[in-house]
Design a protein around this nucleic acid. Sequence first.
RNA 1: GGCGGUAUCGUCUAGGGGACUAGGACGGAGCCCUCUCAAGGCUCAAACACGGGUUCGAAUCCCGUUACCGCUACCA
Length: 479
Amino acid sequence: MSVPRLRFAPSPTGYLHVGGARTALFNWLYARKYGGQFLLRIEDTDKARSTDESTRAIFEGLEWLGLTWDEDVVYQGANLERHQVDARRLLDSGAAYRCFCTREELDQRRAEAEARKEPFKYDRRCDALPAAEVERRVAAGMPFTIRFRVPDGTTSWDDMVHGTISFPNKDIEDFVILRSDGTPIYNLAVVSDDIAMRITIVMRGDDHISNTPKQIMLYRALGAELPTFAHLPMIHGLDGKKLSKRHGATAVGDYQHMGILPQAMLNFLALLGWSPGNDIEVMTVPQMIELFSADGLLKKAAVFDTAKLEWMNGQHLSLLSSADIEPRVTPAIVRAGLATAGELAAKRDWYLALLDQLKVRSRTIDDIVRQAEPYLKDDITYDPAAEAKQWKDRPATADLLRAAGDALKALPAWEPPLMEEALRALAEARGLAGGKVFQPLRVALTGLSVSPGIFDVLVLLGRERSLARIDAAVRHLAG
RNA sequence: GGCGGUAUCGUCUAGGGGACUAGGACGGAGCCCUCUCAAGGCUCAAACACGGGUUCGAAUCCCGUUACCGCUACCA
């Protein structure tokens, strides 16, 4: 059994789309699971739409996800000569013929057929041209395309995900393989390259199912061995339509910038169109490789639901230690202007303790950054809603906070059990439930009505800062 | 229009003729825990597209219908 060779072959006409990322993921998982090779080919034959920028975006997206490829990147555009040679071989062997019909003529005939409500199929008129006439036209420099002559019969294959699929050849017209300018059409370029790259498994979106019979005919006419085909279902938006920009974020980079972890993205994508069974959902990347099996590949298109992605990210966040996520959080904090990397490094232990507190109540890296502000910045601002809710009776609150500050200040050590004892005693002395003390205090310390446990906040802030914030709140309330 | 593909809770899915009173997860509702918010635990609502077969028995197999998606270019 030969080593499986798979490839991901995006065209660089935009950013790395989540659908493309998932196709890449399944190819990669298959290669990793079965000891195969995963290759990357950039299909840049459409010069008008391809850009270096989007080629870079594809690399970046794949690298961020950790979907590494095994050999040098293949640029389809660099294989133009081989594509032409293959087209020529097909022409010479009689599997293809020259077509002198112009695009205008074709468009017109297509429109006429349309008007008559008939399906349009190229009528092979140029295939019927006498050899002498063909020669005359070529000699006269008439432009021509090369069309593949579709044989009679049926073309079918055993698809890895769909089982047997077959197409009556009569429904397939003699398709163009080489344009009049000498450049190849997609189907030729793909087959030519897949043969050259010795690809054994072609795993791609099921929007290519209709191209497959054409490609199979090309493989045969070229005398090449057929690869195994696996057609993955598409990804749709919430409205059931093929996922596109109007559904919001569709580029993997969008999710990277939203603070999604690559492993969570991969995990989520893997579950769209594949299931390991046994109700398993949250998986690390090694586990995904371990569990991956082509049997679990589904046929049905899946809807991309970001709510579940965020939940998944939260799951992965809790799987990681604060030290693991620190490299991803720090740049975001720096970008938000809350601290410099140097400042954070100087108090690393404290910083990691802070992350431990914040990550449990976060779903994304951005959530962590949002919550970190009161601990990283010197000044806090009181959230109006929190103030209105927890500081209703301002004089009484000022008094309560002053007392709480005094109690805390009197503590022999800055430790949670002592804090709790003192604060609960204060509450009891005033006939209040603990929360009636903790909540106003939380606002004084963080400016917010939501935070980690109050004693954790006190520890994170430290004695001096906590006491100072309480003082400031008392002054604010009195003033 | 032609051809192809697909069809289980709103969403991701388990399910491979009897173990189905159709399971899990997200989201939703509620309860517990609790100083808030999360996390966690528990509970509830929620689906086999429809119609015919085959079979003692169908979510599972077959056929048809419907719906949705894709392809139908000198795009990829």
